[in-house]
Structure formats: structure tokens, C-alpha cells
Write a protein that binds this DNA or RNA. Structure first.
Lengths: 316, 316
DNA sequence: CGGGTTGCATTAATTAAACTGATGCTGAAC
DNA sequence: GTTCAGCATCAGTTTAATTAATGCAACCCG
């Protein structure tokens, strides 16, 4: 198999010789010796079995009819090789092509749509593919190079994943507007431990929320669990209990119209850090660099909350 | 200029490694050593400036997003190179492509249309380009390789033109149906010399017709000249004089309806030989070979006149 | 018609490139 | 922690490309 017994260089030598009807001229133009051209042509004639040129003694060459047909196709191939070469260099320098992003569910649905919109407006040559999925799967996809960058929490990351922190998200409590805590300005974690809790049950965030209690030798009254953020909001708003979030509420209304309220927690709890993950060993594409830059700008302009937030501010 | 710092072989090594996510596997499949694959990939990464693969220690490679994009284009180029290779081998073996023919005017208009029709019916993959032009120009075009084969007379041929005789065409006289010779079965060249003649004035045929007289120390009464065969027929049919032809009349009627008659010449005159010309040094394409074969068959089945014709038979 | 010229092919020697076997190195698996 | 898998590196070798010099055959010109 693989009958390509010729090289691009030989094709190039051949075409230039064909264009100028001269081996000698081609050698001059290509800055090589005349026998190099000659042998390239002979080699092509050898492997194709065609007579590509007629040699007019003392006055150059001319392409045979077969040679002309072969010439056209050879030129085409060389053009395409050149295009590949330019494509490769544009891949390394232009902000274009496809950018594959994967993000942690809550954050992604909340932040990415507007962010991607701004990004593609600024860089219209980029096509963005953005998916959301749980942490474990996300990391696996980054490891497998299915996605170039991920946007998620600094949790359960293997050593060969590089994490670039974007924003620090301390947890806060959420209650319904008629909850006993609704009028309080702040609440302690110790108080919360005795109240019924609605647990947002993502694989990694659950462990995090649990650790907030356990590190203080507390045990939350974890009465309800759900994997849906919308569901959790609804349950809290309907008075099932409080919940702990670390992404801003964005709206104080649950899907059924009942209302929520965010309450600061008095203790300084270890925040979750949201950031960009990628393979440590992989260079980023220009498109990914640009996206990360935009992400940083976006976070510093409109922080979901301040990176070092002591007090809690929830955007309406 | 010319940034193609890679070879087809390197692209091939790269793509196979990409497909199998393994340098080692690619080396096995391609029957080369593992460092060969490795260095090809490194070279490509060098010249493109891209990181094509991520090396997972002890468990192969995977293509980076950039690597995937480069891979697709590389595969495309390799496919096209393979196609070029196959195209070249089909050029040398298939009866297909374009066949350029050039012919001497009278013969071409008379014989080629039906011949080409039969040819393309038998070999539908061939596109035939057939032109007619005077001898000098025809030969120049053959020398310049603008046409692969020519169909013409064995006259004024340079040494590096190869001539393959097809049919011998002795000249005959043509007169109007009410000419004084019209009822004669034959006429001598000596008689004709004193009669008014209509000369078909092609560059080479004129010299030939003149030589028929001059070699016998005769001088024709060359009253009228024309470069148009149709015109010559018309003038003869209208009684301007006789003419000498060597291609069959094919029809005994001139364009205006007046009639012609062919008369055998008593002397055995040196015939013109019609044949195929091509560059001596050039191999013929399969299509040209097939065409020449058909030409030979056609001539031997329906000879314009017998190659050694003594008596004159004119097809209606 | 012969010497000079032109231009491709050939040759032999050189240089560059590709290839190989062996070894090193690093993370993964057990 | 030890072994294993798998890519990179190295040094030596084989192969291919390149070159300067020469050969050769037709064209050109006086």
C-alpha cells in the first residue's frame, strides 16, 4: 500500500522545470544544482512510469501531453500542501478555529452564555463548543484532551491538571423569605447545624459543604437532597429548610414565585475557588488564551462576589 | 516563500500515530522503528510551532485540539497525494484523459469526424481535441508537444518526427461531367499539361502536384488557384478546367449542384502517403495507441482508395 | 560544414537526512 | 517501592539528496 513514492520536493522541482521548460532555469530559481532537478524529474518518471518531458537537445524541455496532465495535478497538490502549512501557522497565531470548553454545571449555566456571546462577538472566527458535566467526568475529558479548558472548582484535581484561580466563593446560607432567619443579617454555622437542611447534592460540592460542618465537629441536619439547583431553590423557598450555596442567587425568586433570601455566615469558612483547569503539559491555543483573559476581566468587572469577600453581596 | 518544511512521509507517520494514539503502534504498522515516528512528529511540531500531541507517560499519546485540526488537514493532503499517485498510474495504463490530434485539412474534415465518433463510443473516457491546420504549423505544434499525434502527408518532415504510413494516395484528375475528358476512362499527364488547370494551392500539396509535371519536363497550364477545396470543386464542376486531387471526391456534386467526374491517370505517378506523425522521442499514451490502431483498421476496412491503387474507385 | 554553444544526463564524491538499536526517563500499575 | 509501558534521546549506520565536473547530442553561426 501507499504508492506515494515521490516527495513534495520532487514535485516542486518538476513543476518549476515544467513552467520554465528548463532544468537549468529551475535549478537557478530554486537555488539548487542542475542535477538535483534532473534526478527529481527522472525519479518521478521512474515511479509514475510516464514520460513527463521531451528533451530538446540544447534547447530545454517540453511537457508531454501526459506531463501536462500530471503537472496540473502536481501543482494542485503543492498548493494544498502550502495551504496546510499556512493553516498550521494560523492555528498557532490566530484567534480562530474551534474552542472546546467544559464547565461545572452551576457556574456554567450561570456565567458562560453571556461570556461566550461577548467572546464570539469579539473574535468572530472562533466557534465555541461549551458543555457542562460533573467534576469527575469533566476532569477525565480534560485528561483525554476532548476539551481544551475547563471552568470548575479547585477540587479533586490530579497532579497533571493545572489550575488557574479566578474567584473565591465563600459559602452563604439561603432561606425562604419567611424563614426564622430571614430577617437576620448573619448566622453562625453552629446554629445552622441544628436546622433542617436542603443539600445540593453534586459529587464534589456535597463533600465541600459537609466538610464545613465536620471540620468544626458539627453534623448538619441534612434532611433533603437534590441534584437540581432549581429544585433546591424551590425547596428552600417553600420552607423545607435552609441551604448552603456558593454561587450567587442571581434571582431571589424560585420557579414557582416563592422567594429566597441569602444570609451571611459569621464564621470565616474556607471558600471554594472557581478557576480554569487545563492539562499542565499542554500549551494553550490563542483562542483559549483569549477566552481565559476575557474570563478574568469579566470576573474582576462583575464579580459573582468579591474574591476575598468577608461580607456577602448578592446581586439581584 | 515555500514554507513546506515537512514531507509527506512525516505527515503519514504523524497521522498513523494520531489514529492509534501510539508511537510504538504506528512504528509496527509502518514497519519502521519507533524513533523514526517519534522524530517525524517532533519535526512537525518544530516546523509548525504547534503542540500536536500530549504525551501520557506509559500510556501513549493523544492529539491536542490543535493536533486534531492539523490531523484532519494532514489526512486530506495525504489522500490527495495518494490520488495523484493513482492518477499518474492511470495516465500510463488507462485509455482515458485528453487526446490532442492535429490533421492536414482535407483529410481531417473528410475522415476524422466519423473516426472520432467511433473512437469516443468505444473509449468514452477519452476526450478528443482535433484541429486542422497547414503542414508547417502542424509540424511545429507536434514539435512543441501541443498535440500528441498528427495525421498528414509524408512531406517536409524534420528528422525527429516519426512517420507511420497509413495509406498511399495516387493522384487522379477531376473534371466537370461535360468536360471533354468526362467520357474517357483514363488520361495521361502529358495531355493534361496543355489543358487549363485549377490548382488546389496548399503549401505542400501544390509543390507535390507541380512535381508530377516537372519531373516529366512538363509545365501545367495552372490558370486558377484556390485554397479552398470546396471552391476548387466548384470551379472544376463549372468548367474552369481540370484539377488534380489525391483524396477521394466522396461526392460527385459541387456545392452549387453541378457535377464532377474523376479520371484515372495513365502514368504511375508517385503517390502521396498519408500517415500518423509524432515526436520520435515521445512514448505514446494508451489513448493515442488506441486511436492509431483504430485509424489503421478504418483505413484497411474502408480505404479512401487502395494503398497500391492502380485503378480509381471513387465512393459515391 | 566544422567549431562553439547550449542544456540535459551521468558520474563519483560529499553532505545531509533518515533510520535503527540501545538506553534513558517518567508516570502509571500492581 | 518495584516493575512496566512507552516516548525521547543518543550514537552509529544506512540511505538519499546534493554537488562539481564531465559527457553527450543537437542547434547555431560564420
Amino acid at each position: 500500500m501507499s504508492m506515494m513514492n515521490f516527495t513534495l520536493k520532487q514535485l516542486r522541482y518538476f513543476t518549476v522545470a515544467g513552467e520554465h521548460r528548463s532544468v537549468t532555469k529551475a535549478a537557478e530559481l530554486l537555488y539548487v544544482s542542475q542535477p538535483s532537478i534532473s534526478s527529481a524529474i527522472l525519479h518521478l518518471e521512474e515511479v509514475t512510469g510516464l514520460q513527463l518531458f521531451i528533451r530538446h537537445h540544447a534547447q530545454g524541455l517540453s511537457l508531454t501531453p501526459q506531463g501536462q496532465q500530471f503537472y496540473r495535478r502536481a501543482r494542485k497538490l503543492l498548493r494544498e500542501a502550502e495551504e496546510l502549512s499556512q493553516f498550521a501557522s494560523s492555528l498557532g497565531s490566530d484567534i480562530s478555529g474551534t474552542l472546546n470548553i467544559v464547565g461545572f454545571p452551576t457556574f456554567t449555566s450561570l456565567m458562560m452564555p453571556s461570556l461566550i456571546k461577548e467572546f464570539v462577538e469579539r473574535y468572530p472566527d472562533v466557534y465555541v463548543d461549551c458543555q457542562e458535566m460533573p467534576q469527575k467526568e469533566l476532569i477525565q475529558n480534560i485528561l483525554d484532551c476532548n476539551y481544551e479548558i475547563g471552568v470548575t472548582y479547585d477540587m479533586e484535581l490530579p497532579t497533571n491538571i493545572e489550575f488557574q484561580p479566578l474567584v473565591s466563593l465563600p459559602p452563604f446560607a439561603v432561606v425562604s423569605h419567611d424563614h426564622e432567619l430571614a430577617q437576620r443579617e448573619s448566622v453562625s454555622i453552629k446554629e445552622l447545624a441544628d436546622m433542617p437542611m436542603v443539600m445540593l447534592d453534586w459529587p464534589v460540592s456535597r463533600q465541600y459543604f459537609m466538610s464545613l460542618f465536620i471540620s468544626r465537629d458539627l453534623r448538619p441536619e441534612c434532611r433533603y437532597r437534590t441534584q437540581s439547583l432549581t429544585m433546591a431553590r424551590g425547596m428552600v423557598a417553600n420552607g423545607f429548610g435552609y441551604s448552603l450555596f456558593n454561587m450567587p442567587l442571581s434571582s431571589d425568586m424560585a420557579l414557582d414565585g416563592t422567594r429566597l433570601k441569602a444570609i451571611r455566615i459569621e464564621e470565616e469558612l474556607t471558600p471554594l475557588t472557581m478557576g480554569v483547569v487545563k492539562l499542565a503539559q499542554s500549551r494553550t491555543t490563542p483562542a483559549a488564551d483569549a477566552f481565559i483573559e476575557l474570563l478574568k476581566d469579566s470576573v474582576s468587572d462583575h464579580p459573582p462576589q468579591k474574591a476575598t469577600a468577608k461580607t456577602q453581596k448578592i446581586s439581584a
